[in-house]
Simulated assay, not measured.
Amino acid sequence: LKQLNLDATLHLIQDEEDIDGKYIKSLEHGMRLNNRALFEKELPLMLEKLKDKKSPMKENSISYPCKNKVFKFKDEGDKFKLEIT
Rank of each mutant, 00 (worst) to 15 (best):
Glu59Trp: 02
Pro65Phe: 04
Leu27Ser: 06
Pro56His: 09
Glu16Asn: 11
Leu47Arg: 07
Lys2Thr: 06
Ser26Thr: 02
His11Leu: 15
Phe39Lys: 00
Lys72Ala: 05
Pro44Phe: 01
Val70Thr: 14
Glu40Val: 01
Lys53Arg: 03
Leu82Gln: 03
Leu43Gln: 03
Lys53Pro: 00
Arg32His: 11
Leu50Gly: 10
Pro44Trp: 12
Phe71Met: 09
Lys79Asp: 11
Lys41His: 15
His11Met: 13
Lys22Gln: 09
Met31Gln: 05
Leu43Ser: 06
Glu76Lys: 15
Asp75Cys: 09
Pro44Thr: 07
Arg32Pro: 03
Leu10Ser: 08
Ser55Glu: 01
Asp7Glu: 10
His29Glu: 10
Ile62Trp: 08
Ile62Ser: 03
Lys54Trp: 01
Asp7Cys: 09
Lys25His: 05
Lys67Leu: 13
Asp78Met: 15
Phe71Leu: 12
Leu4Thr: 14
Leu10Glu: 12
Phe80Glu: 08
Glu40Gln: 15
Leu4Gly: 14
Gly30His: 13
Glu28Leu: 12
Asn68Ile: 09
Leu38Asn: 00
Lys22Asn: 04
Glu48Tyr: 07
Asp20Ile: 05
Gln3Ser: 10
Leu50Phe: 11
Ala37Gly: 05
Gly21Pro: 02
Glu48Ile: 06
Lys79Thr: 15
Glu83Asp: 06
Glu48Asp: 10
Gly30Asp: 08
Phe80Asn: 11
Gly21Val: 03
Lys2Leu: 10
Met31Asn: 11
Cys66Ser: 09
Ile24Ala: 00
Phe73Tyr: 14
Thr9Trp: 12
Val70Leu: 09
Phe80Trp: 11
Asn60Cys: 01
Asp52Leu: 13
Lys74Leu: 12
Lys51Met: 10
Ile84His: 03
Phe71Ile: 05
Asp18Gln: 00
Glu76Trp: 10
Ile19His: 01
Ser26Ile: 00
Asp75Trp: 07
Pro56Trp: 11
Phe73Asn: 12
Arg36Gly: 02
Lys58Ala: 04
